[in-house]
Deep mutational scan, measured.
Amino acid sequence: EHKIILYENPNFTGKKMEIIDDDVPSFHAHGYQEKVSSVRVQSGTWVGYQYPGYRGLQYLLEKGDYKDSSDFGAPHPQVQSVRR
């Protein structure tokens, strides 16, 4: 199983989107239009992308907690697509 939770604010606060065993080419299409400032990967390895359609900067997200976007190497809290 692959499970990831994306949070609007640092330290796992604010609006969140939970994804289980699915690739998401556009967070906006899924109704999530917030920034991504923290991430909790509960299982599996994911790649987050700066822009929709798996474009832009890529961020490797392995199991663990990323309490701020800088923890996974993002210069800005901008992640708009993700895949396993």
Rank of each mutant, 00 (worst) to 15 (best):
T45M: 06
K15D: 03
G31Q: 11
D21R: 00
R55D: 06
S26V: 07
A29N: 12
Q42T: 11
V47F: 11
Y49P: 00
K15A: 08
W46L: 02
D23V: 01
I19K: 06
P10M: 04
S70L: 12
Y66C: 01
E62V: 11
Q42E: 14
H76N: 14
L61W: 07
Y54M: 09
H2P: 05
T45W: 01
K3G: 01
E34S: 10
G64M: 02
E18S: 09
H76L: 13
W46P: 03
Y32E: 12
S37K: 08
L6G: 04
D23Q: 00
Q42R: 10
D21G: 04
G44W: 00
N9T: 09
D22E: 15
Q58S: 14
K3I: 02
S37W: 05
L6T: 05
I5G: 06
G44Y: 05
K15Y: 08
L6C: 12
S38M: 09
S43P: 00
S37G: 14
V47H: 09
H30L: 14
Q50Y: 00
I19T: 08
P10N: 12
V24T: 05
Q42L: 15
G44R: 00
L57R: 15
E34H: 11
H30Q: 13
I20E: 04
K63L: 13
V47S: 03
K16T: 05
G31M: 06
Q42N: 08
R84T: 02
V47Q: 05
L57P: 12
N9P: 00
A74R: 07
P25A: 10
A29M: 13
K15W: 02
G64L: 00
R84V: 04
Y59S: 05
Y54K: 08
K67F: 14
F12C: 10
Y59N: 04
S69Q: 10
K15L: 08
I20D: 13
E34F: 15
H76A: 12
E18T: 10
Q50T: 06
K67E: 11
Q33P: 13
H2F: 12
L6N: 01
E18G: 03
V41Q: 03
G31F: 04
T45F: 08
G31W: 04
V47L: 09
Q78H: 05
P10G: 05
F12V: 05
N11A: 13
R55M: 12
E62G: 05
S43M: 06
G31C: 04
R84G: 01
Q50M: 02
K3E: 08
S69W: 10
H2N: 08
M17Y: 08
S38R: 03
K35E: 06
P52R: 03
Q58N: 01
D65N: 10
L61Q: 02
S26K: 03
S37Y: 05
Y49Q: 01
Q50E: 08
M17S: 10
G44C: 01
F27N: 02
K63G: 06
V47K: 03
Q58P: 09
L61D: 04
K3Y: 02
K35W: 06
R40N: 07
D65S: 08
F27A: 03
Q33L: 14
V39K: 03
H76Y: 14
Q50G: 02
K15G: 12
Y32P: 11
V39Q: 02
Y7W: 10
S43T: 09
V24G: 02
H30A: 14
P52H: 04
S70E: 12
L60M: 10
D22I: 07
Q58L: 03
Y59M: 14
I5F: 00
F12T: 05
S38E: 03
Y59R: 03
K63E: 14
K15R: 08
S26M: 07
L60W: 03
R84N: 00
D23T: 01
Q58T: 14
H30S: 13
Y54L: 03
L60K: 13
S37C: 14
I19M: 02
S43H: 06
K35P: 07
Q78K: 06
D22Q: 12
D65V: 07
E62C: 05
K16P: 10
Y66H: 04
P77W: 08
E8T: 08
H30D: 07
G31H: 11
Q58R: 14
V41C: 04
P10A: 07
E62F: 01
R84I: 02
E8F: 02
N9Y: 05
